[in-house]
Amino acid sequence: MWLPLLGLLLGVSLGLLSDIQIPQVYNNYLTIAILAAFDTLFGGIRAYLQQVYDDRIFVSGFFFNILLAAALAFIGVHLGVDLYLAAVFAFGVRLFQNIAVIRRILLAKWTGRNKNSDTNT
């Protein structure tokens, strides 16, 4: 449980300390990549809680989604159509759905644990 959080903290501090700045032109790509990363992350947590988690799907999904989103944004810029909005919409909707499912599973687990402790006593 603590190891992934430690990883997050390590990543954040490394990023802040490195003082790397992405040029303004590539800002859209970075934003969409972050959204894609969040989508995969919450998808992974959901899959784990539903006990259908697969390592390969998780890792490949993470990188593939980021690349796909960045590619969409790139093509959109060159075609003059804001295609990245499609990615923002898709990831946004999935993000909300995944978080909702995670919340329900955690709530169900919590209420189940409470019931068990009540029957034991």
Partner: peptide, 13 residues
């Protein structure tokens, strides 16, 4: 993966 996410977030920040 969380490390990468954190890093990218910090870059964006």
């Amino acid at each position: 993966i969380l490390g990468i996410v954190g890093f990218v977030l910090a870059l964006q920040y």
